[in-house]
Simulated assay, not measured.
Amino acid sequence: MTDARDRLIVGLDVASLEEADAMVARLGEAVTFYKIGFELAVAGGLTLAERLARSGKKVFVDLKLHDIGQTVEKATRQVARLGATFLTVHAYPQTMRAAAEGRGDSGLQILAVTVLTSWDADDVRAAGFSDSPAELVERRVGHARDAGVDGVICAPTDLASVRRIAPRPFLAVTPGVRPAGAALGDQKRVATPGDAIRAGADRLVVARPILSADDPRAAAEAIVAEIDEASRGLT
């Protein structure tokens, strides 16, 4: 079973490398896995990804790629060279197949984004889909499974259907995780860390509840403890 500490991915959702380095230093050994998204990536975060990987940390490069197949394949190959563990692409069949090809025999795992956790039914309709969020997730999970990627990014509320369509070792990585009593921010489909683990999440992505805490390390350790307790209850 994966160690509880490795099941928490802290999103470095900050604006500069200096802020990211300072947060990594504050969190120390409490955190083993970091996510670098768009904001930090365009501020030089891909060099940080490589540096973190070389230091022994795991890195999730959250770029949500979606382009013509050749471009996605070549970009994926570049991310694999950084030593990253995860890369996200949007869950369109051609995009996913291209990313799976681009990772080659590296250790990079491809995760497909199903429906953003900030979207609800109105957002899905506004994007031109007739499906409900749950229906669209189910369709995209099936596409991801068939395209040969390693897993999906999904809301905690979608985990039951993900596990029904694509059992482990297919991965379910879950943002939209908030400790009990935490502000939801722009997230609409959420769960506590323990509930997400019990529902079938492999790893949880948490940013603001840790980054904005008075003591980020203590906040991370509290989530790891909740993950560990929930995991033990499943054995």
Rank of each mutant, 00 (worst) to 15 (best):
Gly181Ile: 07
Ala191Pro: 01
Gly83Lys: 11
Val173Asp: 15
Gly200Arg: 04
Arg163Trp: 09
Arg81Thr: 14
Thr192Phe: 00
Pro93Gly: 10
Arg140Ala: 11
Pro167Phe: 10
Ala160Lys: 07
Pro169Arg: 14
Ala183Asn: 06
Ala112Ile: 08
Pro193Ser: 07
Asp122Phe: 13
Ala155Glu: 08
Phe170Thr: 00
Thr76Cys: 00
Thr71Tyr: 01
Ser132Asn: 07
Leu82Cys: 12
Asp158Asn: 01
Arg163Asp: 08
Gly128Leu: 06
Val89His: 07
Cys154Ile: 03
Phe170Gly: 01
Asp105Pro: 00
Val124Tyr: 08
Ala91Val: 03
Val89Phe: 08
Ile153Arg: 06
Ala199Cys: 13
Leu116Tyr: 05
Ser106Met: 04
Pro179Leu: 06
Ala144Cys: 09
Ala172Thr: 05
Pro169Ile: 14
Gln70Met: 13
Arg189Val: 08
Arg168His: 07
Ala180Lys: 14
Gln109Tyr: 14
Ala126Cys: 12
Asp186Gly: 10
Asp146Tyr: 02
Ala112Gly: 15
Ala84Arg: 02
Arg178Lys: 08
Leu116Trp: 04
Pro167Gln: 11
Asp120Phe: 04
Pro133Asp: 13
Phe129Trp: 15
Gly185His: 02
Tyr92Lys: 12
Ile110Lys: 06
Ile153His: 03
Val141Asp: 13
Thr192Cys: 01
Val173Tyr: 12
His90Met: 02
Val152His: 09
Leu136Pro: 05
Gly181Asn: 07
Leu136Trp: 13
Thr85Val: 05
Pro93Lys: 15
Ala196Lys: 07
Val141Met: 11
Ala134Gly: 04
